[in-house]
Nucleic acid binder design. Structure first.
Lengths: 105, 105
DNA sequence: AGACTACATGTAGTTCATCTACATATCAAG
DNA sequence: CTTGATATGTAGATGAACTACATGTAGTCT
């Protein structure tokens, strides 16, 4: 599944991943792939811009580190990010309820 | 909730509504509002283009009628539309599973 | 009779989250 | 030395959504 299939939920998924612990971009992509049982396969061209958006919005904060000689930008949830995650979970719950009501599932 | 909140699911919702019985555009908008417990409130500028797309794709067929002196375009599911609905339901199921796996809900 | 709302159909231009295609850099494996 | 994995991205294109507005007809209220 690509991000188009989860349109609008990517931010929530990223925030939920960071709730588990701080991570750098590439690790977030890998975590989402693994947590979803290899169903999500998001390109970096989708995820890195989303990380930038979330950082600009104040939901996450990033710091540069070096791991095995490679630059890494490690991200962590902020207080605002926790709130954004709660809102995202609420939005997802609403979507599920609306879809359930109309589709009868 | 607007269609942005259900991005990508609008077609499936329309097809599911037409599975209940043929309907004209305005009635589809009303049905979605009622079935969702007033949570969906879709503008005609979103729904009418979606109906055109589905008709062009062969998923629904439309005919002009006159009801109470007003023109109505009444839509019905086609065989292709039933298949598209099944696929949409499968996509929705996948999304739910992926979100559940990552969010733990 | 006129204003307003509901019932009907739309279209145009804008927005922006996604895509694909690439780019650069460094380490590990063969 | 080459290739793949691990890292970071950006640019331009796409298309499903939005808002704003248009036209037309019937019903309701003053």
């Amino acid at each position: 599944m690509d991000a188009d299939g989860i349109h609008g939920q990517l931010d929530t998924l990223i925030l939920a991943t960071l709730k588990r612990g701080e991570a750098h971009g590439y690790a977030i992509i890998t975590a989402l792939k693994e947590l979803s049982g290899d169903r999500l396969d998001l390109p970096s061209g989708t995820v890195y811009p989303a990380l930038r958006r979330l950082e600009r919005a104040g939901s996450i904060s990033g710091t540069w580190t070096v791991g095995e000689g490679r630059r890494r930008r490690v991200y962590a949830l902020t207080e605002d990010g926790l709130k954004a995650l709660e809102k995202g979970l609420g939005d997802w719950r609403s979507l599920r309820e609306v879809m359930g009501a109309v589709l009868g599932t």
